[in-house]
Computed example of a mutant assay.
Amino acid sequence: MIFFIPVVFLAASAMAVFLLIRCLAVALPGNPSWSGWRRAVVAAALACAATATASYGLGAINLMSTVAVAQDGGASSAPFPYNHPCRAQLKGPEGAVDYDVRFLALRTVCVMEDGERRAVEDVPQGVRVTAAASAACAAVLAGIVMAAEVRRMRPTAGERRQRCRPN
Rank of each mutant, 00 (worst) to 15 (best):
A11T: 10
V111T: 15
P85M: 06
R107P: 03
S35I: 14
A14T: 08
G126K: 00
A70E: 08
R117P: 03
R165I: 11
A105S: 11
I2W: 09
V129L: 14
F18A: 08
A148W: 09
L104N: 13
S65G: 02
A148E: 12
A50Q: 02
A78I: 13
A40M: 07
A147R: 05
R151P: 00
C137K: 06
M112P: 10
R154P: 00
Y56W: 14
I61T: 05
R161P: 03
G57C: 05
V145A: 11
R38D: 12
Q162T: 14
I2V: 13
G36F: 04
Q89K: 13
G115F: 11
A142E: 03
I144K: 00
V41F: 10
G95P: 00
R165H: 11
R161Q: 13
V123H: 00
M1T: 09
V41P: 03
A133S: 12
A47L: 13
V101R: 02
L46S: 01
N167A: 15
M112Q: 15
S33H: 15
A60C: 09
Y99T: 01
I61L: 02
T66R: 05
S76G: 08
D98H: 08
V123C: 01
T51H: 06
G59K: 02
C86M: 04
A68I: 00
A47G: 09
V145H: 03
T53Q: 08
Q89N: 11
T51V: 14
D72I: 04
R128I: 01
S33Q: 15
S35E: 15
G92Q: 03
C164A: 15
V150G: 10
A60N: 05
P93M: 06
R87G: 06
R118W: 03
A52L: 05
R165S: 13
N83G: 05
A136R: 12
F4Q: 13
S13G: 11
M1E: 08
F9H: 07
C164I: 15
R117G: 07
